[in-house]
C-alpha cells in the first residue's frame, strides 16, 4: 500500500480533511495523519452518540466524499477511520 498516488489537488490534504469534517460536524475534534494518498482519521463528536459504526462512518465519509472522488483524488484510501464520542 506504499505505492504512489498522484493527485491534482493543491494544498495541505490533512488540513482539507480536517476542515471538511469540521464543516459537516459542528463539535468534531478531528485528528488526521498520513500522506501519499493514505490517511488515518479519528473524529470525536457527540453526534455519534447512539449511532452504529456504519451510520457514524457514513457521516465522516459524506463530509470528505469530494476528496475521494476519481482516480486522481487527493484521498486514495482511509487506512483507519475511528469515530468516538467525547
Amino acid at each position: 500500500m506504499g505505492s504512489d498516488h498522484p493527485t491534482d489537488f493543491v494544498g495541505d490534504i490533512c488540513e482539507a480533511i480536517r476542515g471538511s469534517v469540521r464543516a459537516a460536524i459542528d463539535d468534531a475534534v478531528v485528528d488526521v495523519t498520513g500522506g501519499n494518498g493514505h490517511y488515518t482519521i479519528t473524529v470525536t463528536s457527540s453526534v455519534f452518540a447512539g449511532k452504529n459504526m456504519v451510520q457514524s462512518q457514513r457521516l465522516v465519509y459524506g463530509a470528505i466524499a469530494h476528496l475521494m472522488k476519481g482516480d486522481r483524488a487527493p484521498v486514495h484510501a482511509v487506512d483507519r477511520l475511528t469515530t468516538r464520542t467525547p
Binding site: 459504526m53 456504519v54 462512518q57 457514513r58 465519509y61 459524506g62 470528505i64 466524499a65 475521494m68 472522488k69 484510501a77 482511509v78 483507519r80 477511520l81 475511528t82
Partner: peptide
C-alpha cells in the same frame, strides 16, 4: 453512500467496509 471499496453485504444489507 459509501466512498470506498470493499463493501460487504449480508442478506441484502450493507454491513460495512474494511474497518
Amino acid at each position: 453512500q459509501w466512498p470506498t471499496i470493499p463493501q460487504l453485504y449480508v442478506d441484502g444489507q450493507f454491513v460495512g467496509g474494511c474497518d
